[in-house]
Structure formats: structure tokens, C-alpha cells
Amino acid sequence: NQASVVANQLIPINTALTLVMMRAEVVTPMGIPAVDIPRLVSMQVNRAVPLGTTLMPDMVKGYA
């Protein structure tokens, strides 16, 4: 099973992602693959992402 990107903290809307905000976890359903974490750094979320939420492609501006 491939790990997905999960929020390590509450990420407010329009926040630029940093490594500290994300962790890799095997979850269902799968979200953004953990291998993409370096690519996500400095991209912004388009909604508030609660702690423990799996990041989906439509939550990150410019990802999809």
C-alpha cells in the first residue's frame, strides 16, 4: 500500500504548505501520494484542512 499525504496540523485556507505540516500515512481512500511531498512545499491549500485529514489533489492549488 502506498502512503498518502496527511495533515500534521490544522492548515488554514490559503496557507502555503511546509514539510512540518505534512506526514506520510497509509490511508483509505488514497490521497496525494507521499512521494509528492517535496512538490507540495510552498503550494497553497484552497480550503482549511483539519489535523489528520488526507490531502486530495483538489485541495491544493496548482497540484492537479
Score class of each variant (00 low, 15 high):
1 N>Q: 15
2 Q>C: 15
3 A>I: 08
4 S>V: 03
4 S>L: 02
4 S>A: 06
5 V>H: 01
5 V>N: 01
6 V>Q: 04
6 V>A: 07
6 V>R: 04
7 A>C: 06
7 A>K: 00
7 A>I: 04
7 A>F: 01
8 N>P: 02
8 N>T: 15
8 N>W: 04
8 N>M: 07
9 Q>S: 14
10 L>N: 13
12 P>R: 08
12 P>G: 14
12 P>L: 10
13 I>T: 13
14 N>G: 10
16 A>D: 06
16 A>K: 05
17 L>E: 01
18 T>G: 05
21 M>I: 04
21 M>S: 10
22 M>A: 01
22 M>I: 09
22 M>Y: 02
23 R>C: 10
23 R>K: 13
23 R>Y: 04
26 V>I: 09
27 V>A: 10
27 V>W: 02
28 T>M: 05
30 M>W: 04
30 M>I: 14
30 M>T: 14
31 G>W: 02
31 G>Y: 02
31 G>I: 02
32 I>N: 01
33 P>F: 03
33 P>D: 15
33 P>Q: 09
35 V>W: 09
36 D>K: 03
36 D>T: 05
36 D>F: 04
37 I>L: 13
38 P>C: 07
38 P>R: 03
39 R>I: 11
39 R>W: 11
39 R>E: 04
40 L>F: 02
40 L>D: 00
41 V>T: 13
41 V>A: 09
41 V>L: 12
42 S>T: 06
42 S>I: 03
42 S>A: 14
43 M>N: 13
44 Q>D: 06
44 Q>K: 04
44 Q>V: 11
44 Q>G: 05
45 V>Q: 00
47 R>F: 10
47 R>H: 15
48 A>E: 13
48 A>L: 09
49 V>E: 01
49 V>F: 02
49 V>G: 01
49 V>D: 01
49 V>P: 02
51 L>M: 15
52 G>M: 07
52 G>N: 11
52 G>C: 13
52 G>E: 12
53 T>Y: 09
53 T>W: 12
54 T>L: 05
55 L>G: 01
55 L>Q: 00
55 L>C: 02
55 L>E: 00
55 L>D: 00
56 M>W: 08
58 D>T: 12
59 M>G: 04
59 M>V: 08
61 K>W: 07
61 K>H: 13
62 G>H: 13
63 Y>T: 05
64 A>Y: 03
64 A>F: 06
64 A>K: 13
